[in-house]
């Protein structure tokens, strides 16, 4: 699915990713854990192509294509999805209009026909119900006035509608109570079909109780310093990140 090789990236001249390697096959769920400032969110931004994140070296191959050479929207159309840690509010653009535009852009890119208004509405309603968002949220401005939990559920709703090949979940658990966490996790689990791959970025082990990863990686100071199976996450929960050394504890990125 995706091969990340020796990826190095900086923002405003400061190197954040310092040679990151990661290989993900179709259907796999990889969790990336690590202390604040390790570069977890940066990975999602670099893979999605955010402005201001400078790739200094390395390569990323996504479904056989050179991902780093693609525009942001082309990456999304090719099947990459990033669930934001802090979803953006867009007043004046309704969630419905936003998602319809998005779903159809991606369908057209896949060579499928655009959905009719009725068909889209049917799908959107089902997705809303799946993440426990009232239908009225479709009519509201994108994330406008949503609570933290509602924003996160809205991200998962989008993921369900867009049917991506690779989902990057950037701290989709932060700020959620247990009920909301379960809704988010159920949404994610419903999309695990043996083909779709996931990168689950999280600070805490908690989310991984609900979304069971195939692999767990510890990211510290811009590199993956340890990889293992789900048991690694439990270990982290017991010992914290202190064993990584003082340097990685700097929470400045």
């Amino acid at each position: 699915m995706i091969h990340i090789k020796d990826l190095r990236a900086s923002i405003e001249g400061k190197e954040i990713l310092k040679g990151l390697n990661l290989d993900i096959k179709p259907g796999e769920v990889h969790a990336i854990m690590g202390p604040n400032g390790a570069g977890k969110s940066t990975l999602g931004y670099v893979l999605s192509g955010r402005d201001g994140y400078e790739v200094e070296g390395g390569s990323v191959e996504f479904k056989g294509q050179d991902l780093l050479d693609m525009e942001v929207e082309d990456r999304a159309q090719a099947g990459l999805f990033l669930a934001f840690q802090y979803p953006v509010e867009i007043p004046g653009v309704s969630n419905m209009e936003f998602m319809k535009e998005s779903v159809n852009a991606i369908r057209l890119a896949r060579g499928e026909e655009a959905l009719s208004a009725t068909d889209f509405l049917k799908k959107a309603k089902a997705a809303c119900q799946q993440v426990d968002l009232p239908l009225a949220f479709l009519k509201r401005g994108v994330n406008e006035g949503f609570s933290g939990g509602e924003k996160k559920r809205n991200e998962i709703m989008q993921m369900i509608l867009l049917e991506p090949s690779l989902c990057i979940l950037d701290e989709s658990d932060s700020g959620l109570d247990v009920d909301a966490l379960q809704v988010v996790a159920n949404g994610v689990n419903s999309q695990r079909d043996g083909k779709r791959s996931f990168i689950v970025v999280t600070h805490y082990q908690r989310l991984l109780d609900y979304i069971e990863p195939d692999y767990v990686h510890i990211l510290a100071d811009g590199k993956i310093v340890k990889s293992g199976d789900a048991s690694l996450a439990k270990e982290v929960e017991k010992t914290g990140y202190a064993w990584l050394g003082a340097k990685a504890e700097e929470a400045d990125a």
Binding site: V72, A76, F81, M99, E101, S102
Partner: peptide, 16 residues
């Protein structure tokens, strides 16, 4: 134009 909102929309496959 809000760059962050624009980026968010691009990540959903919507053309610039």
């Amino acid at each position: 134009i809000d760059d962050e909102a624009l980026y968010y929309m691009l990540t959903r496959g919507i053309s610039r």
